[in-house]
Design a protein around this nucleic acid. Structure first.
Lengths: 220, 220
DNA sequence: TTTTATTTTTAGCCTACCCTAAATCATAAA
DNA sequence: TTTATGATTTAGGGTAGGCTAAAAATAAAA
């Protein structure tokens, strides 16, 4: 059985995200930027992850995550997202505050704990940001989603996730009245700058730049 | 502000317990046995805790916990016991399984998390073993307790804690039908071996040796 | 009081994870 | 094709927390 330290788990999770679930290769600098550690530290960690065979690592040529690596990454993501659900649903944290705390909580080593937590939360399928929660075996059932700026005029849907989940962006959304779960309808689209007018929950009308709308995922 | 690492927090908590809340002095070997680390490692840690002034440390003569140390230890104990309540009440762990997991959970660094958890659990005053949960400021309100083997014939009370909380002992109690919160009455006492007969919840009668009864605390 | 035994500390080493500075590799430009 | 640039790795060092083996201090026994 492969066991990873907390730091190794963090790196592998970052690598999984950067490689878009294993589709793309990833560079040392990519990981460095994501983890906010220096490239030299990353090199060292990649060597270790390579030895544990959760990534395939060729010096100077970047890396690919292995099947085993994907499994482990998905288990880490599962833990992280279940704790996020707990923090938001039960402890009333707002969805822009939970990331770091969930990270720490998800490093507690206890299989049973995660099973019980899952059960206690009612086996949720999505986290507060709308991202899917993998099951025990790493299976993910994603729902069909579309970027808000690509929706046709008049089409309706529900906000289910954001691409950029930085606290700043999440706070901005809260401020203008958009939130995960909001029912929306595209009322107007401006051709020359790509901005859109959105009706939220059939009552509040808000404007969004193309950049903002391009960060919002809608289930249609 | 004094900040402690997770390991330092663990040592300080152990020291607090060993010194019976600050009443007694503690030796290096005591700490070594409690923490399951070697005396050499303990010496090093005591030096560090001494520098941070949470203990008063004299080489070769043991240590005393300081007022500041007590405060910090009580905050760690508070976190630990709140997580224990969560694990037992919400996630349905049994009270003999929660210690290590609560330990890991209590190292998550987030003040707000503990406040919200406390609120979510309904501001509990005692943990699943019946031990009191200190408040935010380290105040503890202990309830008057007596050892079960010292109760008079015919007296009644409620089991609120155990002295020996080893998994083996806790499982034994579960097996014979005793548990934290059980209403009990002393039905018989045998003089020559100190064993007792106890009526639990007015229905089940159980026998206990003096050793077992001497490990059970009852609120009278 | 002297010797022996026990406790405690020091010295030195190890792993994990991070860092900086210097060296090396790959590639884009001249 | 050679050079310059940027990415990456190596070398060496720091902190935290553990370890063993040996030295030193205290306590107990002769």
């Amino acid at each position: 059985m492969i066991t990873l330290t907390s730091a190794e788990e963090n790196y592998l999770k970052a690598i999984y995200h950067l490689s878009d679930g294993g589709k793309k290769g990833v560079s040392t600098n990519d990981v460095s930027a994501e983890m906010k550690t220096k490239p030299a530290s990353v090199s060292d960690m990649l060597r270790k992850l390579g030895e544990k065979e959760v990534i395939e690592y060729r010096k100077y040529y970047g890396l690919h995550i292995t099947e085993e690596g994907k499994k482990l990454a998905l288990q880490t993501i599962r833990k992280h997202r279940l704790w996020e659900v707990f923090l938001v649903e039960k402890l009333k944290f707002s969805w822009d505050e939970v990331n770091e705390v969930a990270d720490e909580l998800s490093h507690v080593k206890c299989k049973v704990l995660i099973q019980r937590l899952d059960e206690y939360l009612g086996f949720p399928k999505f986290d507060p940001h709308g991202d899917p929660i993998p099951d025990e075996y790493g299976d993910v059932r994603a729902r069909p989603r579309q970027l808000l700026n690509e929706l046709d005029l008049g089409s309706t849907g529900q906000i289910v996730a954001v691409k950029d989940s930085s606290p700043a962006f999440l706070r901005y959304l809260d401020k203008v009245g958009a939130y995960i779960g909001a029912r929306i309808k595209v009322m107007d689209k401006t051709e020359f700058d790509g901005s859109v007018e959105i009706l939220v929950d059939n009552k509040k009308s808000i404007f969004m730049s193309k950049d903002v709308a391009g960060n919002i995922l809608v289930m249609v």
